[in-house]
């Protein structure tokens, strides 16, 4: 799949932002006034900034408001509804914390749950697609949600939780990578089932339907950069998990170590998310003879 920068930026930043909001919603850290403002500002900048960048991915954004209407069937619509609800509820909670020095526990709790549910809905947009076997698996929501929760823990200074959490994230990431590598092959879709010609013999592409490229090939038959996948995976796991865990283990509450941990994690998640898209194979590639 085409790793669109706007979608990678969106899913990474808003995942982190909603993770932060979830921790802030349950009163961790229990801040009020100016300090609370700083934390909420960062959380909102990440989550709202991410959502805005996602709209750059749209071909026709003027109809965006209609995207809140189909929550009964569409994970993308559910994501929109949950995101707005989470941001509004957490906004009320933030007003309490910043201006009235109080934590409205119930509102914060609801906001925290909605924040995590938002990340879950984002992950389900991908996990629901039978056409992309690599994504169509429980590891997709587990990875997205755990990255958000423990990334949020890092951003809100929950040193111990973040440290152990990142070890879990690392494990989930490794499981996600290694179980997904042959999922396309074992999904049962081949050029023979795609064309229905398998009972005559072995099928191969003879002539593509068009000499140039098209939307389908650009969007869903992206193959660039796969050869560096192994190196990028190693780099992603080191930056996303190993360095932050080391920094947190050395007690990165504030200062340089904390900054290194945050930036290393962020760059690592970007690399992991890039691979999430770039490595994903859509079954339509079968029609173009581009899959195995």
């Amino acid at each position: 799949m085409h790793p669109a920068p706007s979608v990678i930026l969106f899913s990474v930043l808003s995942g982190l932002g909603f993770g932060m909001l979830a921790w802030l919603g349950i009163g961790k850290p229990p801040m009020t006034g100016m300090f609370a403002f700083v934390f909420f500002f960062i959380a909102y900048a990440l989550s709202v900034g991410g959502l805005l960048s996602a709209t750059f991915h749209l071909g026709n954004p003027k109809n965006s408001l209609k995207a809140f209407s189909q929550w009964r069937t569409s994970w993308l619509s559910r994501e929109g509804c949950c995101a707005v609800a989470a941001l509004m509820i957490m906004g009320i909670y933030a007003i309490g914390a910043i201006f009235f020095e109080t934590h409205w526990v119930i509102i914060g709790g609801i906001g925290a749950i909605l924040s995590i549910v938002t990340v879950f809905t984002t992950s389900m947009i991908y996990a629901q697609l039978k056409t992309v076997p690599r994504w169509n698996h429980w590891t997709t929501p587990v990875l997205f949600v755990s990255l958000s929760v423990f990334g949020g823990a890092l951003m809100t200074g929950q040193v111990t939780v973040a440290m152990y959490g990142f070890v879990v994230v690392g494990l989930i990431q490794v499981i996600a990578w290694f179980t997904s590598d042959n999922r396309f092959a074992s999904s049962g879709s081949t050029i023979e089932t795609a064309t229905g010609l398998g009972n005559i013999g072995k099928v191969r592409m003879f002539e593509p339907p068009h000499t140039g490229t098209n939307y389908l090939l650009k969007e869903m038959v992206y193959v660039i950069g796969r050869k560096h996948a192994a190196k990028l995976r190693l780099l992603a796991i080191i930056l996303m998990v190993v360095i932050p865990v080391l920094m947190l283990g050395m007690g990165a509450q504030h200062g340089v170590k904390a900054i290194v941990a945050v930036f290393s994690h962020l760059v690592g998640v970007f690399a992991s998310r890039w691979l999430f898209f770039a490595e994903a194979e859509h079954v339509v590639g079968l029609y173009y003879g581009k899959r195995g």
């Binding site: 697609l129 039978k130 879709s189 079954v283 029609y287």
Partner: peptide
């Protein structure tokens, strides 16, 4: 239509083009 392209991703047959 907002042109999000998700329906084209969901289609196995490449029947939709933005």
């Amino acid at each position: 239509c907002i042109g999000c392209g998700l329906c084209a991703w969901a289609c196995p047959y490449g029947a939709r083009e933005l």
